[in-house]
Amino acid sequence: MLFARDTTLALAAAVDLVNTMPETDVDGADRLETREDLQRFLAVHPYTGSFTHDQREVDAVRGIRPRLRALWLTDRAGAVPLVNAMLRDGHALPQLVIHEGYDWHIHAAGDEAPFATRILVETAMAFVDIIRSDAYERVRECSADDCLSVYIDYSKNGSKRYCDTGNCGNRMNVNAYRRRKAAESA
């Protein structure tokens, strides 16, 4: 599945942000509690615009995670009102922009908007592309027995079953192998 670069980047950031939630973590840990946690997120997913780098900003970003996760818990038609609400709440006004390191792409929230709002709007814009491309079946939750992490399946044939956060594919293959060996021994 191929999307514009800004869409792919926004989707990757949304996946990683949702996967900081305790309910998506294999160990049940919250991976976004401190300013340092947010700095690590920003090191991987740089955003433009203003930042306060304070605990209120961390809390605001933490606060949007359930709204983002909801996009993985619905289907294409169910995602439409969620995406529209995100765009409305963020006062989205799509504009083409170009800046260092990026060719022309869309920003739909101003640089002065709170960081959590910018994440929400950029994620909503990325999901607009998924919905319009009729590619919602690629919005997935990990198939591992013990994992609820989310991902976007970019594989050519749409066959990816496991997330990249907890080595789930390997873990499930080892479990299946052990079950087969135990059944052979019995």
Rank of each mutant, 00 (worst) to 15 (best):
I106K: 00
P114S: 06
P81S: 03
D89R: 12
D103P: 10
A92H: 01
E100K: 12
E100W: 06
V80P: 00
T117M: 10
L87I: 08
E112I: 11
T117H: 02
A109W: 05
Y102M: 14
H105C: 05
P94A: 08
H91N: 11
L71C: 02
W104N: 04
P81W: 08
A113R: 14
A85G: 10
R76N: 07
L87H: 07
G90A: 03
V80A: 06
Y102F: 13
G110P: 02
L73G: 13
L93M: 05
W104K: 02
F115Q: 02
L73Q: 15
L87Y: 09
L82Y: 07
G101M: 07
A79S: 11
V80E: 12
A109Q: 05
D89N: 15
H91P: 00
A116L: 02
I98S: 10
P94G: 09
L73K: 11
D89E: 15
H105A: 02
A108P: 02
V80D: 00
H91S: 09
N84K: 13
H99P: 00
W72N: 04
L87Q: 07
L73A: 13
D103M: 07
N84V: 09
L96P: 04
P114A: 13
V97L: 03
Q95E: 15
E100D: 14
D111S: 11
W72K: 07
T117F: 01
H91D: 11
V97T: 15
A116H: 14
P94N: 07
M86A: 15
D111L: 12
G110C: 01
L93S: 11
E112P: 00
H91C: 01
A70K: 12
L73N: 13
H99M: 00
W104F: 14
A77I: 05
L71M: 03
R76Q: 15
M86I: 05
D103Q: 13
L93C: 01
H91Y: 08
D111K: 06
I106V: 15
E100G: 10
Y102H: 15
W72A: 03
L96W: 12
L71W: 03
L93W: 02
G90F: 04
V80Y: 02
L73D: 15
D111E: 11
L71I: 02
A109L: 06
E100A: 13
F115A: 01
T74C: 03
D111N: 11
T74R: 00
P114E: 14
W104R: 08
P94I: 07
L96F: 13
V83N: 10
G78E: 05
G78M: 05
D75F: 07
E112K: 12
A85Q: 15
A85F: 01
V80H: 00
L96R: 13
P94C: 08
L82A: 07
I98M: 13
P114H: 11
D111Y: 10
A109N: 05
T117R: 09
N84A: 12
E100V: 12
L93P: 00
A116M: 01
L87P: 10
L73V: 00
L93D: 14
R76S: 15
A116N: 04
A108L: 13
L96K: 09
A92W: 02
D89F: 06
L71Q: 02
E112H: 14
W72C: 04
W72E: 06
T117C: 09
P81I: 07
A92D: 00
A77R: 13
Y102R: 15
A108E: 09
